Computed example of a mutant assay.
Amino acid sequence: MGERNDQRPPFSFPSLNRRTLMMGAAATGALSLAGLGAARAATQLAWMGWQGYDDPLKAGSFLKDADIELATTYISSNEEVITKLQAGGAGQIDLITIYFGHVPILSGAGLVEPIDEAKLPGIDKVFPQFLNVETIRKDGKLYAVPFTWGTLSMVYDPGAIAAPTSWKDCLKDEFKGKVAMTDDITGLISTWAPIVTGTKTPTRLTMDQLKQTIDFLITIKKEHARTFSPSYGESTDLFARGEVVISAIGWDAQVGFAAAKGKKLAFVMPQEGVMAFMDTLAIPRGAPHLDAAYKALAQAISPEGQKVIATNLTQAVINSDAVPLVDDVNRQVYRYDALDELFKLARFNPFWPLEEGGEFATFDQVQEEYQRFLKA
């Protein structure tokens, strides 16, 4: 994925199963005992995550005031975080960014600490629509703190076409060769599986349903899409050049990306619904500088910290007190004053099954089928 500001959504999923995960968790203790981590000063905060997500910690005088030295490790996928924690990073890393769908995997393997909400000022200002997502909780405990979010909505050019109402509108003959399609395994399958198969939960597909969905995506790719973009940034460039007017998958943040280029785009949530995503912050098990980690968490979700995310990355904030601080474009895109209405159409989906033997396709199988789509 490269830098977090490469205009791709922040989810990249590893090939995992329960056996490999638990083996990694067991190895964590042994490696920690082996003392592989170099000694660090008490105020040195070891942070691992997307580049740009550390910007709130660098803002103003926070690091100086908190007596923290930030040691950053940037990632190009969430897989790197999981692999690091499995291989002994737990006990050496203080704070991570992680896609919300991975939180049950990490909490189930004991790789992240439960969050003591009493130690986290500002947690009461986090929108409940994100704080109460079941995926980030286990047995009543919070294991990850909401940080930023978005929806994969339908993007279109309002100067060229009327507002669409259905995802299937992009398949009209009049738009052939003018459809934007982006490389996003999660977004593409989550968007089109309900339309193709009728499923209510696109991460719970039988193999037949998965194959049907992939076949349909191949048809869109070959017969409707202008090209297959590797990122939403490049997809936005196609809109800016007038090469496409509607998307088979989009990201609401593209409206902000385009505005920075002088191009007006808009997005809608089609009647079939859209996928919602959320990035979170979590504390790995045995974080060596727990107090500093909590200070950093508080700064990251503070109004000032959240403003940095909105300004620098054109992304959505999770703190209600941050809303007055963001610009008009950000407020128009993310509609903070209508979140309940938004989530009637936006869905947080569970992660794919990791183990074989059940009714539904595992993520390994999803990845295999997606390769067939990529090669088509």
Rank of each mutant, 00 (worst) to 15 (best):
A376K: 08
A310T: 01
V274C: 06
F363S: 07
L131Y: 09
P9V: 12
A322K: 03
I214H: 00
K119Y: 08
I189N: 00
A287C: 04
G35D: 07
F147L: 13
G198I: 10
Y294K: 09
N132T: 12
L131C: 06
P158F: 07
D183Q: 13
L374P: 01
R335D: 15
V112C: 03
Y232D: 11
I318H: 01
C170K: 06
A39F: 07
W50D: 00
T182A: 13
A25N: 03
A240M: 04
Y53V: 04
E117C: 12
I218Q: 14
E243D: 13
A258M: 01
L210S: 06
G37S: 14
E369P: 07
I115Y: 02
T182G: 04
G357D: 03
P288S: 05
L339P: 06
G89S: 10
A253G: 10
T311V: 11
D54E: 15
L188A: 03
D337W: 02
R40W: 05
A118Y: 08
F239T: 02
S166V: 04
Y370Q: 02
E368I: 11
G177W: 07
T83C: 10
A258T: 01
E134V: 10
N17K: 05
K264F: 01
Q129G: 06
A90L: 07
S247W: 03
R8V: 11
F127Q: 06
V126R: 02
W50M: 02
G49W: 00
D321H: 05
F62N: 03
E359T: 15
V255W: 01
L95A: 06
P104S: 08
D55E: 14
S166N: 14
A316L: 05
L45H: 00
A87E: 11
V81T: 12
D184T: 14
T227D: 15
I75T: 08
I161C: 12
L188N: 12
L33P: 00
I189V: 14
T186Y: 10
F216D: 03
P230Q: 08
R137W: 10
P14C: 08
